[in-house]
Simulated assay, not measured.
Amino acid sequence: MTRRSPARLWETLAAEQPGRLGDPSVFKSLITDATWPSFTVTTKEPTFFEPGLPAR
């Protein structure tokens, strides 16, 4: 894990509060299994959200 990753933040916070934030070390060997792709859409065009509408 990189030094500035969200996982590193989790490790730091979990170390400060043992037992309250889970155990981030469990996921170190399963990085690809513990992540998922995501995306954000910013649009004013409803076509993306309403299947069946013709594209303009």
Rank of each mutant, 00 (worst) to 15 (best):
P46Y: 08
L53D: 12
T2I: 06
V41C: 13
P24R: 02
D23M: 00
L53S: 11
K28S: 15
E16P: 02
L53W: 05
P54Q: 04
K28V: 08
L21E: 03
S29M: 11
F48Q: 09
D23A: 01
S5G: 12
T2L: 11
L13E: 02
P51N: 04
G19W: 03
F27L: 12
T12K: 14
L13C: 04
M1W: 06
A15I: 12
D33R: 09
S38R: 08
L21F: 06
A15W: 05
F27Y: 15
S5A: 15
S5D: 12
F49L: 14
W36L: 12
I31W: 15
R4L: 04
D33C: 12
R3Q: 10
T43I: 11
L21S: 01
L53K: 08
F49R: 07
T32V: 03
T12E: 05
S29D: 13
E11S: 07
W36E: 10
T40G: 09
A15N: 06
S29H: 11
W10P: 00
A7F: 08
R8E: 08
P6L: 11
E16R: 09
E11I: 06
I31N: 07
E11T: 08
Q17A: 11
P54C: 04
G19R: 02
W36K: 00
T2S: 05
G19A: 12
T43N: 15
A14W: 00
V26N: 04
Q17W: 06
T43S: 14
T47V: 08
T2K: 11
P54A: 09
A14P: 01
L53H: 08
I31G: 11
L9R: 15
T2A: 14
P18A: 06
A34R: 01
K28C: 04
G19F: 05
D23L: 03
K44Y: 13
E16Y: 03
P54L: 14
G22K: 04
V26G: 01
P24C: 06
A15C: 07
E50I: 03
T32I: 06
F48N: 13
D33Y: 13
P6R: 02
F49W: 12
W10N: 00
D23C: 01
L9H: 04
V41L: 15
S25F: 05
W10Y: 10
R56N: 07
E11R: 14
R4A: 09
M1S: 11
S38I: 13
E16S: 10
R8K: 11
T12V: 14
E45W: 02
P46E: 07
P46G: 08
T40Y: 15
R3K: 13
T32R: 03
T35V: 08
E16F: 09
T42I: 14
W10R: 00
V26F: 09
F49M: 10
A55G: 02
L53C: 06
I31Y: 14
S5W: 06
A34P: 00
D23V: 01
W10F: 06
T47K: 04
A15V: 13
D33L: 11
F49H: 13
G22A: 06
S38A: 14
W10A: 00
P18S: 04
A14M: 09
R4T: 04
R20F: 10
K28Q: 13
L30Q: 08
P18T: 14
R8N: 05
I31H: 12
P54Y: 05
T40A: 09
T47L: 09
P37L: 04
E50F: 11
